[in-house]
Design a protein around this nucleic acid. Sequence first.
RNA 1: GGCUCUGUAGUUCAAUGGAUAGAAUAGCGGUUUCCUAAACCGUAGAUCCGGGUUCGAUUCCCGGCGGAGCUACCA
Length: 597
Amino acid sequence: MQIENHLQEIIIRAIRELYHSDMDTSQITLQKTKKEFKGHYTLVTFPLLKISRKKPEETAEEIGAWLAENAGIVSGYNVIKGFLNLEITSGAWIGLLEEIDTQPDYGFTPATDDAPLYMVEYSSPNTNKPLHLGHVRNNLLGHSLCEVLVANGNRVVKTNIVNDRGIHICKSMLAWQKWGNGETPESSEKKGDHLIGDYYVLFDKKYKEELAALQGKGLSKEEAEEQSRLMAEAREMLRKWEAGDKETVALWKRMNEWVYAGFDETYHRMGVSFDKIYYESQTYLAGKEEVLRGLDEGLFYRKEDGSVWADLTPYGLDHKLLLRADGTSVYMTQDIGTAKLRFDDYPINTMIYVVGNEQNYHFQVLSILLDMLGFGFGKGLVHFSYGMVELPEGKMKSREGTVVDADDLMTEMVETARETSRELGKLEGIPTDEADKIAEMVGMGALKYFILKVDPKKNMTFNPKESIDFNGNTGPFIQYTHARIQSVLRKAAEQGIAIPEKPDYTLLLAEKEEGLVQLLAEFDAVVKQAGAEYNVSLIGNYVYDLAKEFNQFYHDFPILREENTSLRDFRLLLSKNIALTIKKGMGLFGIEVPERM
RNA sequence: GGCUCUGUAGUUCAAUGGAUAGAAUAGCGGUUUCCUAAACCGUAGAUCCGGGUUCGAUUCCCGGCGGAGCUACCA
């Protein structure tokens, strides 16, 4: 990064000297030189023509000549059409590497006490069913977003709003009460969230049976729903819960505990965590208060049936319900309360909601409502909206039972990783417990990488088979590359090749370029003859591309190689930095990299 | 109907308004069994359509067409 910034400044100076005009850095279009041309950075001269009043080629030529003459870090240049390709001196690159080498946390900005505070909400499950594939994308995006924010020197509070109240929980509770025979996670050896999820499904099944029976007696669908005893009992349970009935609340607490234990297990395996958890049961009342206040202040209005609404037509939207006729709150009410409590609890600068794009409208409305209620933060809410995840077989539909459970998916990924590794003979001679760990890292890495590599905004197709391939644009490929770098370093140590703290040279090998063994031998000979020390790094094309894309500390390293390919002309990078870079970059996304695999 | 997002090789994904639109997989043709490797080299293959702004558009604007989601007194 420094090289690029430096270059920009020099170019501005060049323009001032040559054309007597002051430019801003934002007006300088500098980009990486395409690989088919010679050079490291390219200045696009078209935007400068107004100032130079010369042809693109002439302008480029003039600036290039000036830079070669006056800028210490430019060793050469060439002009193609209006593009000025600049070559950076080896010294500048090596200087940069040396600087990086002295800073273990290069690329990371430590947060200060007055750094901006972000609160990021993600995951936000219902407590009546286990997490599914959609939550996986949510959790991974949310977690990575936090990591990236922290790496850039911000303070972050990771938060989760748990929807722990409502009719859906009561359905599970009721089914368990009626048909559960006292079943517990221990007695059934099921995860708590799965157990509760099963009773939710059971309720639905029984409910449908009841409806069918009623309809069989000649009732219409609506009449059947009206007369359903099961649903009436569920509603009664919700009423009792809201009234604080001891027995109901105790059952609710007990069952929620089971679910939370189950969630914790899933979160832990996924590698995500939270600093502060909000529960809807604790925030919905605050929301209600705010809505009533709004009503008093004439911001909202009440319909004849007693329900409370907001008129959003001045904003080009519709009317929005805020309180039901019976006075109970809806999703929006709760989110208003939660937002208020959060801003009371923390000095938040930016609130980010990681929530699927099916709720775009909801957040648009939330922002407006908060603003209407006089909360200055309302307009600044950020909805980090992401698309749906589909499978090669098609869309997930809960009604058709094609929902992919998060726990099952993770287990399957790890199993596949183990199988693949075994088939390829990679885990031979590695103790079982370590092999287990590696399978876990690879399986999870495959899942995480595949999901995170796609633009969050877009709907995506998750293909488990492709994700776990050891070749291709996959997590395992990068993990594997890291493992191989480590292997090379280990072997070097075994053979008594000392890896100096600060080597004179590091060989960076981009795969697919040359025969590896021969290169190593030649390089070794050349460097030894010079009496110097060296490190070796292997880097796959993928890693390089990925690093470029995802990892700012890698941003500055082109694969440096010049025309006269004596091996010394490989520009030299520090292998431990590369290994470290992979580790750090992957770490930002919660992906672990094994030392060997 | 209205609102939001989205449309790129067979497929899955890239591309701050810049050069000949990149990868990966799957094809096809060759060389290999060597490094922790079914590897390496080569080849073919795409911007939904029509306008506009610009020196220059996959990108920005307008209009079509297609896909997804929302438009619940569910969350």
